[in-house]
Design a protein around this nucleic acid. Structure first.
Lengths: 104, 104
DNA sequence: GCCAGTCATCTTGTATAGCAAGATATCAAT
DNA sequence: ATTGATATCTTGCTATACAAGATGACTGGC
């Protein structure tokens, strides 16, 4: 609980372009405020790869001579992104109702 | 991650009046759509009690001759509710931004 | 060239949460 | 008396998040 927020954030980040591990970590911490550790992100990436949601390939990008492992969104990942977005919206409206409204 | 949604839902439910375990379970499933099992709710209640957020007392309420364990919100629980509500709103806006907006 | 520092990834161990399943107990109804 | 519904609790399993440490590769200063 709530299982899936990290996964959802990852899929969102990969939607526009490929990212490598530490880059994903930085964006999660800066944008989503999730305060993820690298000991969390790499196992997550491996799980998402095993599940067939993302694909990984080593690249040497731009000015960097150092190879980095880039992750891209696969079709199954895009479908999962849609499903998880819907789940998120559902949870969001329900939790908002619980928080904002006076409950029984 | 995201730890705290169940806790938040519980504190919200207890805000207006005392509830007993199964009642909390039913309201979570109906209203929050969280699909919680009773093997989840009782340990949760015990944790929240140990943490000093809620108090428990056995009561025979209304028409029922069967005693039920009622949980009430303690001051520390109310403070926690406020803190978790703020956290929730923060996470919500950040995740919405990630989902809705085109990200880098 | 060598060394230190940084970047980047991976692994191990620990703690905890959620859940299914089963145990227990009480009351109501037949 | 037996069944079924209500209500709580416990055990065992699995998965996840994290801290911490290990590893390797490149860069920059000397």
């Amino acid at each position: 609980m709530i299982k899936g927020v990290l996964e959802l954030a990852l899929l969102c980040i990969l939607r526009k372009r490929a990212h490598y591990g530490l880059e994903i970590l930085q964006r999660m911490n800066e944008e989503s405020g999730l305060e993820v550790a690298d000991g969390t992100i790499y196992p997550l990436l491996h799980r998402m790869e095993s599940a067939g949601f993302v694909a990984a390939d080593w690249r040497i990008e731009g000015d960097q001579g150092r190879p980095r492992k880039y992750y891209t969104l696969k079709p199954r990942g895009a479908a999962e992104l849609k499903a998880m977005s819907d789940d998120w919206r559902d949870l969001r409206s329900r939790m908002d109702a619980l928080i904002e409204k006076g409950t029984r």
